[in-house]
């Protein structure tokens, strides 16, 4: 059975009553539960379809950051002047127009794939996931929300209501998605780097994340601190690159292999370090 909630409150009540499969755009759920043509997809248990809940579709900005409703469609992110350019860069290379017209950001987060292309960007923006149930609102950092491939700490009565990206300053960013073709391809790996330099060229902040090279997105604050120091003191980066190399533990699968993923990730890291003025 599929529940079509009247409104957001009805959704929370229904989630409280039983464990339901949440469906938004369905672009992940429908592929995962694919059945023979003409037969109903094999979705586990009952479902609740939130695609048409307007209450979950919004983009707004305030002191705490950029709030994106979970039901916001990928294409809507591209069309909004409020969305930060690094997020747009990632979304532009996701899937195809047909998928972006229905796929949502909440679905990309909820799916928790290491190859989810919005995720590396959300990690560098210190994104907070806002969950809600009839018991109330719970805010949790994306670092703690996603625990492994397809695994999150969402409780079955909770819905992802919105995500909040911190407003951070940057003077340079580098995003690269490596896929089998230029569009409609799931990432073999992806890389994002952001840095912020002052007028004198001193780097004040640097942030790096890798997608699809580990169980979760790879971002490491300690290494970023070391990198920041090295960038400003013209120290060699070799040790830092070695440390990242330890964190990058990709797998072989149908899209790529571990060796390629690792070498390519480290090359992108080096390109970014050069771009930020390091050597």
């Amino acid at each position: 059975m599929v529940i079509l909630p009247k409104d957001y409150k009805h959704t929370l009540d229904a989630l409280q009553d039983e464990k339901l499969t949440i469906i938004a755009g369905g672009t992940d759920v429908m592929v995962k539960n694919r059945n023979w043509s003409g037969l109903i997809p094999r979705v586990e248990g009952n479902s609740i379809n939130i695609f048409q809940l307007n209450e979950l579709s919004y983009i707004r900005e305030d002191e705490s950051g950029l709030h994106i409703g979970a039901g916001t469609k990928l294409e809507e992110l591209l069309n909004s002047p409020l969305i930060f350019e690094p997020l747009k860069a990632a979304v532009r290379e996701m899937a195809s127009p047909a998928i972006r017209h229905v796929g949502t950001i909440g679905g990309n987060v909820g799916n928790a794939s290491p190859a989810g292309d919005t995720l590396p960007i959300l990690y560098v923006y210190d994104t907070v996931i806002v969950l809600e149930s009839v018991e109330g609102i719970r805010e949790i950092s994306i670092f703690e929300f996603i625990t492994g491939p397809g695994k999150t700490t969402r409780k079955s009565n909770e819905i992802i209501k919105e995500i909040i990206l911190k407003n951070i300053d940057y003077t340079g960013f580098y995003y690269e998605k490596v896929g089998g073709r230029r569009s409609d391809a799931i990432s073999k790996l992806s890389f994002v780097g952001l840095y912020n330099a002052d007028e004198k060229g001193t780097i004040k902040d640097v942030r790096i994340a890798f997608g699809a090279v580990y169980k979760t997105i790879v971002r490491n604050h300690e290494l970023e601190r070391q990198l920041l120091q090295s960038l400003n003191s013209e120290k060699s980066m070799e040790d830092i690159i070695d440390e990242y190399s330890q964190l990058i533990q990709p797998i072989d699968d149908q899209r790529s292999n571990a060796n390629y993923r690792k070498n390519c990730s480290l090359s992108l890291l080096k390109s970014f370090i050069q771009m930020a003025g390091g050597n």
């Binding site: 369905g26 479902s47 695609f51 048409q52 294409e75 047909a98 229905v102």
Partner: peptide
Amino acid sequence: AILFNDEIVNSCLLPMANVVN
């Protein structure tokens, strides 16, 4: 592919719940 509210969408991935009204 079909037009869903004037935009291209893949009908093989669209559950009927998304189509209501």
